[in-house]
């Protein structure tokens, strides 16, 4: 074996894992013509759907009075999201529960599946999180105007502030309202991307150090990977929770714009 140079050993490409590419073919999807291509993204989106179906559809099949383990997990997530919608957005928001549940389960399962080795992180892509955030933003804004009419604009008019301050506050509120989808999507995507990139960097170090030190040098990066992995598990769940609860908060604004 020829001794590799340090440049070769530590040629770590932490962002390569995010490249959307064809499975079995060459290159990636390009434009509208790329829709028909079976990419890694499509595979892991499909696996997310399959996992959700397995937990919520197959798991609840027994309708057991004393739930089985899988049924119990499904019911716990159901109850958790149901209570969140009810607490944050009020009882009348319950009719949007299926949409919120779709969002939460999709993000949660995509986040968790992305932590499997060799997987692809669907939710680390701003194309995905951006669409999710825009769906929430547009949905909530349209809903707000449909339910409240022009009164929805009261959301930006702080009635309890001094009159002189109100226009300034309205501008700030308006800006913060339009920044919502941006922060909403970037928070989720960047968290996932950063976590996976860091894991990859440590993995690259582990490989390089293992070759350099004939084994033991990899111990430190591997320890770091294990720690990071635990943290990423937390991030995966917390980010799904944060995305969903913010959606509930925005929904609450649309249902009750008068604060």
């Amino acid at each position: 074996m020829a001794t590799p140079t340090e440049g070769e050993l530590f040629a770590i490409h932490p962002m390569d894992q995010f490249i959307v590419s064809s499975l079995g073919g060459e290159g990636g999807p390009v434009g509208m013509a790329g829709i028909g291509m079976f990419t890694n993204q499509v595979l892991w989106l499909a696996l997310t759907v399959v996992a959700i179906a397995a937990l919520f559809v197959l798991g609840s099949r027994g309708r057991a009075m004393v739930p089985t383990r899988i049924q119990s997990v499904g019911e716990m997530i159901y109850g958790f999201v149901y209570k969140m919608v009810e607490d944050v957005a009020g009882r009348e928001a319950i009719r949007f529960f299926p949409y919120i549940m779709t969002l939460f389960t999709f993000i949660l399962f995509a986040n968790l599946l992305a932590l499997l080795p060799y997987s692809f992180s669907v939710t680390s892509h701003v194309a995905v999180t951006g669409v999710l955030a825009m769906l929430v933003f547009l949905g909530v804004t349209i809903l707000g105007f449909v339910l409240n009419g022009p009164k929805f604009l009261k959301l930006f008019w702080a009635e309890d502030a001094p009159l002189a301050l109100r226009p300034i506050l309205a501008v700030i509120e308006l800006i913060s309202y339009f920044v919502r989808p941006v922060s909403h999507s970037i928070r989720l995507g960047a968290n996932l991307m950063a976590g996976h990139a860091v894991l990859k960097v440590f993995a690259g170090f582990a490989g390089g150090l293992a070759v350099l030190t004939y084994g033991p040098g990899a111990a430190v990066p591997i320890l770091a990977i294990s720690t990071m992995y635990g943290l990423e598990l937390l991030v995966a769940v917390v980010q799904a929770y944060v995305f969903t609860i913010l959606t509930c908060v925005y929904l609450n604004d649309a249902l009750h714009p008068g604060h």
């Binding site: 434009g31 790329g34 829709i35 959700i52 179906a53 779709t102 999709f106």
Partner: peptide, 22 residues
């Protein structure tokens, strides 16, 4: 250039999940 594919399949997945759940 990958966005059309990503967004299209995301919608497919979301609709599938929505119908499965609701």
């Amino acid at each position: 250039e990958t966005f059309p594919s990503q967004i299209f399949w995301l919608f497919v997945a979301l609709v599938a999940i929505y119908f499965l759940l609701s």
